[in-house]
């Protein structure tokens, strides 16, 4: 694969995109998991699918070529804002916003698909991820999203920690609610960035599996972020490598590697008394 990396542009684009996704998906995933919002990634990936099928439909209807990734990003961001609006409307049943947006995404996808004469190869790549589908334009978009996400977390780490740990205290401290809305929008952007590599159906795994593994063996929040990214990168690199050599879907392989890492954290029993005590607390 290393030789192919230097020979083929598309492999290089996939690999660099994968590395960016391996960094930003667990980075935001750490905040999502501790805020008990794990399913939000699933809802937003399905609404992204709605956006992608909309892009494909417009292309088939008008001949105007729209990058489906861009229409996916737009739908995903709108879905994120919709979830946020509904989370405040159903204060005591905030999780209900997730299936609402998820069903909207699936409904739109099915309708746009039927309007644009069904499945095509391009859509298959979006659903399950593809090593050959990442274009230079995609890589640029994913890089921009990566820079925005990392900058946001570096600049607003304190506020994001407080918001995740104790929303009520952050209200008392008058931490701007706008930070939370930007965060949700960034989650939508990361999902759009990740779906080229791991596919829509598996994108939420990149945000949650590395964190689910890391949370069992770490005791501070900074450690959690660091170890989650480590596991994320390990999954992406080995998943792409194995996918390439075994000629199987890279998305599925990346997620399986992440699951193996998670299983290993279950097997590691005596990392330390404190840590195994914490695992019981989860």
């Amino acid at each position: 694969m290393i030789e192919a990396l230097f020979t083929f542009d598309f492999i290089r684009y996939s690999f660099i995109s994968g590395l960016i996704v391996g960094l930003i998906a667990p980075l935001l995933g750490a905040f999502i998991v501790v805020r008990r919002l794990s399913l939000i990634a699933d809802a937003l990936s399905h609404i992204s699918l709605g956006g992608i099928t909309f892009g494909l439909y417009i292309t088939s209807l008008t001949g105007l070529v729209i990058n489906p990734l861009i229409s996916g990003v737009v739908f995903s961001v709108l879905g994120a804002l919709g979830i946020e609006k509904m989370r405040t409307a159903y204060k005591n049943f905030s999780e209900i916003s997730i299936p609402i947006i998820m069903s909207l995404g699936i409904a739109l996808s099915v309708i746009f698909l039927s309007l644009s004469n069904g499945f095509n190869q391009d859509l298959f790549g979006y659903l399950f991820g593809s090593i050959s589908a990442v274009t230079k334009g995609d890589l640029i978009l994913i890089s921009i999203i990566g820079v925005v996400v990392v900058t946001f977390i570096i600049l607003l780490y304190k506020e994001m920690f407080l918001l995740s740990f104790d929303e009520e205290y952050s209200e008392v401290m008058k931490i701007n609610r706008f930070i939370h809305i930007i965060f949700i929008v960034l989650v939508a952007l990361v999902i759009s960035a990740s779906m080229r590599i791991v596919g829509i159906l598996l994108v939420s795994a990149m945000m949650t599996l590395p964190v689910a593994a890391a949370i069992r063996i770490t005791s501070s929040f900074k450690q959690l972020i660091f170890v989650s990214i480590l596991f994320g990168e390990l999954s992406v690199i080995s998943g792409l490598f194995l996918g390439f050599h075994l000629d199987i879907s890279p998305g599925g392989t990346i997620v399986l590697v992440a699951l193996v890492i998670l299983a290993l954290t279950f097997l590691v029993k005596k990392v330390g008394v404190g840590q195994s005590d914490r695992a019981r607390e989860l």
Binding site: V34, F161, F165, D166, Y169, T218, S219, S220, F221, K222
Partner: peptide, 11 residues
């Protein structure tokens, strides 16, 4: 929650 006493108090 995966946070230390130091992280919580500093918040």
């Amino acid at each position: 929650f995966p946070a230390t006493v130091e992280e919580v108090v500093l918040a």
